[in-house]
Design a protein around this nucleic acid. Structure first.
Length: 585
RNA sequence: CGGGGCGUGGCGCAGCCUGGCUAGCGCACUUGCUUGGGGUGCAAGUGGUCGCAGGUUCAAAUCCUGUCGCCCCGACCA
């Protein structure tokens, strides 16, 4: 490709809307253009990279016996009603009427369409296990698209779905896909990534992993152990917090004028915040109050709370708080109106004695509160139904690891892939069955596996760049080799460069030739901005000595002079070596 | 949905508070000369209903009202 003909120009100024480095470089390098919030078009440079990512992805999916299919993006309400998700998913799903006013959806994931396939095509145990995958556009009406290509409303995803006759078979295959994912991410040049245990969200199922690129700009917080291999999304990470147990003292009400926060309370009572109980309030869709209690020094994780409660929640409004009998700033377990509210108690409250908690009376708190004695023992059977318990607190840096007790640490990450155990969540609701060996109808046991294809490009750029631009792994770079020609009119520089360009193309190497009549500085700056891993510079000065200059985009070795007669062979070797660096095995 | 910010040629911005001739600057783009190893210099050009609608006024990019869009933080996120 000649750079003078490449559609998509580079710019010096950083567009105002860009925050992330990947976003800045994507715009400045002419990789993408924005159409609307969360909606981008890929120009040739980005499209070339994405196509390479897709190709590697297909190879790895084929290697685990995946069969590529293409399912429609447009879906009908009927199909999504079968799984119950037409109603369960809120505004995240694009919905539109067709010309007959029939409700349609734009698919945000494809469990429903794939089950549609499976129940007619996978009807015998002889066909199982089977895996279908596609590389397809997904639509999600995100509340807040952001970060350039990181969080989009329209994007490409590789989604795969496997069907099994047993949990054991699914589990075996699940780990095979996990392996395939590790290979895929290595091959695409991802370096610092991990798989972590994650929340199942709206998928259902028993377990799941997220593949996370560890970069400071990541949206998710991960909890990892400094000693063992425990890794989890903070949404589900746990810790066996150390708590203090002591002889139960007399419960007392104490006036606490103007004390609203845990910090103030601990200071006022001259105790550690670990000796307090904090109430965090949410509300359900039915306007019922949800009061979550955790130890004062800890934070509530909403995902965990939702899991314990099995309900969707949002932060509580004042009217709901009042109706539930809670007093903001002094909310405690005793005295709540349990007919109007749910109470969720974190395990740390069970484990700590003599806590200071709110008294549900303005400017008063209780001290020496002991959960079993002062609250649970006084509940009748019906009230007990309104009280749930579980692990709802956030594990933090410094807390002990649930596996080895060593200190945990926090890291930021971008989710680049995930794998989910689905079980029979969809095959049951959508009546998807096969006949087993005994001729008995059984539900398929399912797994699903996603990779955010579009997102991987900015993720790689976040991980791999310098102040001048991205530094692409050759496996996903838009081109293999970038040729600059300085002062092209003199000394036959342009002619020599063209010869090399043609020879490399003939050898199947993807070359970008900067044939513009630009100053060296401009050419170098643009080459840096495009991030192509190998660079050759033709100039009259060096050609006078029969040499051209070769350098790596990442400057891993000093630039070297290569005889122009050998440059084609040299580059063929260099390209081959470069690809070899990203082999998975 | 809550909080904050921003809409002026393709990009980055000034002008707006305090209304006033043909709306300005830099980059990019076109043409010519110049320069030639980290964004040369000079000259001449192309390109804008100042997001949109309504209002106030002799006069609106500028003031008022409404509306749409975009970004950031939070909420949310298979």
């Amino acid at each position: 490709m000649l750079l003078s003909k490449l559609v998509g120009r580079t710019v010096k100024e950083t567009p105002r809307d860009a925050e992330l480095v990947s976003h800045k470089f994507l715009l400045r390098g002419g990789f993408v253009r924005q159409y609307a919030a969360g909606i981008y078009g890929l120009l040739p440079l980005a499209q070339r990279s994405i196509a390479k990512i897709e190709k590697i992805c297909r190879e790895e999916m084929n290697a685990v016996e995946g069969q590529e299919v293409k399912m429609p993006c447009l879906g009908t309400k009927e199909l999504w009603d079968e799984s119950g998700r037409y109603g369960a998913i809120g505004k995240d799903m694009f919905r539109l009427p067709d010309r007959h006013d029939k409700p349609m959806v734009l698919c945000m994931t494809h469990e429903e369409p794939v089950v549609f396939f499976a129940r007619t095509e996978l009807t015998s145990y002889r066909q199982l296990p089977a895996m279908l995958y596609q590389v397809q556009t997904k639509f999600r009406d995100e509340p807040r698209p952001r970060g350039g290509l990181v969080r989009l409303r329209e994007f490409t995803m590789k989604d795969a779905y496997s069907f099994h006759t047993s949990e054991e078979d699914l589990q075996k295959y699940y780990w095979r896909v996990h392996e395939a994912y590790m290979r895929f991410f290595k091959r695409t040049g991802c370096r610092n990534f991990v798989s972590v245990l994650s929340d199942n969200g709206m998928f259902g199922g028993k377990y799941s992993h997220e593949f996370m690129m560890l970069v400071p700009s990541g949206e998710d917080t991960l909890i990892t152990c400094t000693h063992c291999d425990y890794k989890a999304n903070q949404e589900i990470a746990t810790s066996p917090y150390t708590s203090s147990q002591a002889a139960h003292l007399q419960l007392e009400t104490v006036p606490t004028p103007g004390i609203k926060t845990i910090q103030d309370l601990a200071k006022f009572l001259k105790i550690d915040s670990q000796q307090t109980g904090k109430a965090v309030m949410y509300q359900t869709k039915d306007q019922e109050l949800v009061v979550a209690f955790v130890r004062g020094d800890l934070d509530v994780v909403e995902q965990k709370l939702k899991g314990v409660l099995q309900k969707d929640i949002v932060p509580a409004k004042d009217a709901v708080i009042e109706a539930g009998g809670a007093v903001a700033g002094s909310t405690g377990p005793i005295g709540l109106n349990l007919s109007k509210c749910w109470v969720v108690i974190d395990k740390t409250i069970f484990e700590t004695s003599n806590l200071a908690v709110g008294a549900n009376k303005a400017d008063h708190h209780l001290v020496n509160f002991n959960l079993e004695r002062d609250f649970l023992a006084n509940l009748n059977e019906w009230q007990k139904q309104r009280v749930k318990s579980g692990d709802i607190a956030a594990a933090r840096a410094g807390d002990p690891c649930p596996h080895c007790q060593h200190a945990l640490q926090e890291t930021r990450g971008i989710e680049i892939g995930n794998i989910f155990h689905l079980g029979t969540r969809y095959s049951q609701s959508m009546k998807c069955t096969y006949l087993d060996q005994a001729g008995i109808s059984q539900n398929h046991v399912m797994g699903c596996y996603g990779i955010g294809i579009t997102r991987l490009l900015p993720a790689i750029m976040e991980e791999s760049h310098d102040e001048r631009g991205p530094v692409f792994p050759i496996t996903v770079a838009p081109f293999d080799v970038h040729i600059c020609v300085l002062n092209k009119k003199e000394g036959g520089a342009e002619l020599k460069a063209m010869e090399t360009y043609e020879a490399l193309k003939a050898a199947g190497i993807e070359v970008l030739l900067d044939d513009r009549d630009e100053k060296p500085g401009s050419q170098f700056a643009d080459a840096d901005l495009l991030g192509i891993p190998l660079r050759v510079i033709f100039s009259p000065r060096n050609l006078g000595e029969g040499k051209v200059e070769f350098k790596y985009r990442d400057n891993r070795t000093p630039a070297q002079m290569v005889p122009v007669t050998e440059i084609t062979t040299f580059l063929k070797n260099a390209v081959a070596q470069e690809y070899a660096r990203y082999r998975a095995d």
